[in-house]
Each structure stands twice: as C-alpha cells, then as structure tokens.
Design a protein around this nucleic acid. Structure first.
Lengths: 222, 222
DNA sequence: GAGAAACCTATACGAAAGAATAGGCCGCTA
DNA sequence: TAGCGGCCTATTCTTTCGTATAGGTTTCTC
C-alpha cells in the first residue's frame, strides 16, 4: 500500500528522514483489545519506546492530561466517547496540538477527508498490514499527514459532490426528521428541503429518503 | 469476561477438558490485517499448531475446500463476501459442518443470537482481550457454543421483541423499499406492511420509517 | 459581462406514508 | 375454553413525500 502525503516532503524519502530509533511516545485508544495489543506489540518491536493503550476517549484525554503529550495519538473512530469526529478536536487540544490520527475499521474516502479536514494527522484503516501501519505511525509522529494512497484514488461516487446544504439536509434525514422539521431547523422552506432531498438522493443513487439515509450511514458521510 | 455455553458441558470444567497441546487447525478470515496477524500470533503461542489467515470469505471457502476442514473457522462479520450472515452457512458447508464462529467489531446481543441461531459455533466480539479470545477459540474448537456472558445479559432494548414479520419488514425498510415493494416481496398486502412499520417503529422508538431503518442499522438488527 | 453552480422560493398534483378503527385466523397457555 | 399475542386484512382519512415546472439571488470564474 502506497502513501500520499502533504507536499512538504518528497514521497520516496520518508522513511530515511525519520530517525529509526527515536524514542517515541505513542498513545493508542481503541475499544478492541486485540487491536490495541497487536498495535502496541508491533510498535514496540519497531523501536517505539513508550506505547500506552486505553479503551475509551475519556481515558485517552485523561492520560494525555496527566502524563503529558504524545508524539502521536491514534484514535479509533468507532469508540466510546468519540461520537463521530467530535472527539478529535478535544484530543488534539489535550495533546498540546501535537499529531492525533484517526484509526477506523471502515475505509471510506469521505471519512478520511473529513478527519484530515478536522485536523487529524492522518487516517489509518485497519485493513492495513501491520508493517505499513508502523510506517504510517512513524510518519505521522514526524509531523506529516498520512492517508493511504489506494482509496484516496478511488473514484468519487458523487460523494464529494454533495453541497453544504445537501449535507445539512442529509444529516436531518439520518435523524429521521421530516422535511418540515429539517426546514425549521435550517430556517428554510419545506419545498427547499424537498429539492435538496431529491438532488442528494440522485447523487447518492438512492431511491428515496430512507435509502439515502442508509447509504449515507454506510459511506460514513454523516 | 465470563462465558455462557450450551448445557452439554458444566461451565467451570471447560478448559481442563480441552487438551491444551492438541494440534489444532484454525482458519481466520478477516479483512483487517492487524486483527488477522494478532490473532494468529496469539494462537500460535498458545499451542495451536496451524493457523491460516485470509482476507475474504471467498478465499476462506477456497482454502477450506483445497486444504481440508478446520477445527475452527473464525469469520469476520464485516468482511468482503459475508453479506450479513449469508456467508455463514456456506462456510459451514465448506468446513464439513465443523465449527464456524462469527467475529465482529460491534458487540450486539441481537447479532450474537442471530449468528448462533444460524448455526455459528459462537460469537466473538473484538473488544475481548486476546487471552479470553484464545480460550474461546479452544472452547469452540472442542465443539461447544460460545458467546460472551456479559452482553448476553444485557437488557433487551425491545430488540428481542421484534417478531419475525417485523424483522422482515425492517429489512425491506433498510433497503429503502416502499411499502408496496415490501408487500410484494413478502407476498402480503400493503396495509399489512404499514401496520408492521408502525408497530416496529414504536418498539424501536423511531418516529418514522427512515428513523427506524437508521436505528436498526445502529443496533445491527438487520 | 456571460455562464456556471449553489442556493432559495413558489405552485401544483399524484403517490406514498402514517394513523385510527375494526375484524378474522391461528397457536399457545392459564 | 377463554384469553392473549402474533399475524393478516379492510376501510377511511390526513399528512408527508416525491416530482415537475418556473422562477429568483448570489458568488465565482472564464
């Protein structure tokens, strides 16, 4: 799996630029015991001196608060306390604005973009091999932005073409709201919502609002 | 984490009944590289001689077909080819009706019950510690049925109270179908579907079909 | 300044969903 | 056997959704 990165560094010289035996402090927050233990084990064999693991966001925040900031924090996207990407800015603050990356089981380009937009140091799908993952960790700890090349290349399923309003309306849909309610919330007319529902349904290839909501859920667009 | 098992064996004598150093053959199918490698590593240190890992259901079926059946197959629920629990019976057949268990990132009682109902040898959430997981594997390979005790104890959120028909209708909802379409699929009248939609929405605490579908998705009831 | 694109509104109509009420069928159990 | 619960149907009605057509504004770009 190749990597894509910010333009600050030339792509092929990454590994050599990061000191191989630097004493890194990494915090892993994931509610899956197995993932935590595996990642910690791999990182330790790769020269990351200190690896702490916690099962929830709250504990991650607490640990960062008590024991000082980390060179990198890995946050599982689906995890108690995260609530989507809401937990990300809190963790970044708790880590003194040093790198915090999102770890996720479901690889979605939309989610990756959102995460990085929200200030994440990167996006790491769990489908990655452990070797690649160790490289990614090293990379992000050095201050670079990481995202797997493969699915950043994926053709847009019309996903990225959702406008701001359409996204707002879609959020309402996913909460099971009626057009009228969404209109009230967004301070718009009901007809306008109908319009957005129609266009976003077309873009998502959905046959109706319910289908659109499910697809959005599936693609992590909410 | 405690375990619950079928009544064939007394609960507390499990481990001693399973030969500790038996040469077990285990197949792990999971699209998360990290999970695969971690599980394989732990099992190997615990005396499971042969551990094969594959990233998709199709490869799992092929391997079982070519290299003979396994003492236990672990199938990730969210994995290419699985399509819900559809892949389970196929894997069971391919494994000569020997134990096949479901591995899942999201721990849901409903899903666990469904899996075991569908013939799974057990249900293993990834939130389990690796030690417990190794025990579970050993347990299931011996022919017992395993499910974590903790969330089999969880109070039913009205979840279990969904009738068969309501579940059928809910599935249709989640696919974005109209009442008419669902009626045709189930060979019923449209009014009947409306009835079921209303009652299942009430049970799920949803305000309409879209909301019901989202809740179902959230709770892995589909 | 023309054009494109996102955005908002209006009117109108048929289709679908949702709610209420009423009844019949079956299987289980007190 | 009477009652209960799941299941299916019917009728009627209101609300909501979905679609179409036809405008309008702003903002950005060529």
């Amino acid at each position: 799996m190749q990597t894509i990165q910010s333009s600050r560094q030339p792509p092929l010289t990454v590994v050599s630029e990061v000191p191989r035996l630097a004493a890194m402090r990494v915090l892993i927050a994931d509610d899956h015991d197995l993932v935590r233990e595996a990642l910690a084990a791999f990182l330790k064999t790769e020269g990351v001196i200190e690896v702490l693991t916690v099962p929830t966001l709250d504990e991650a925040l607490r640990v960062a608060d008590e024991s000082g900031s980390f060179d990198l924090v890995l946050l599982d996207y689906n995890m108690p306390g995260m609530n989507g990407l809401d937990g990300l800015p809190r963790m970044i603050a708790a880590n003194d604005r040093r790198p915090v990356a999102i770890l996720s089981g479901t690889a979605s380009r939309a989610l990756a973009e959102q995460a990085i937009q929200a200030g994440a140091a990167g996006f790491v799908p769990k489908t990655m091999s452990s070797r690649s993952m160790v490289s990614a960790v090293r990379f992000m700890a050095a201050g670079e932005i990481y995202a797997p090349y493969s699915f950043m290349q994926k053709a847009d399923n019309g996903t990225g073409t959702l406008s701001q309003r359409e996204t707002d309306v879609l959020r309402g849909l996913c909460e099971g709201k009626s057009n009228k309610e969404i209109a009230r919330d967004l301070d718009l007319q009901e007809v306008t919502i109908k319009l957005h529902v129609k266009t976003l349904s077309r873009k998502l290839n959905a046959r109706n609002r319910t289908h659109a909501a499910m697809i959005a859920r599936e693609m992590n667009l909410i």
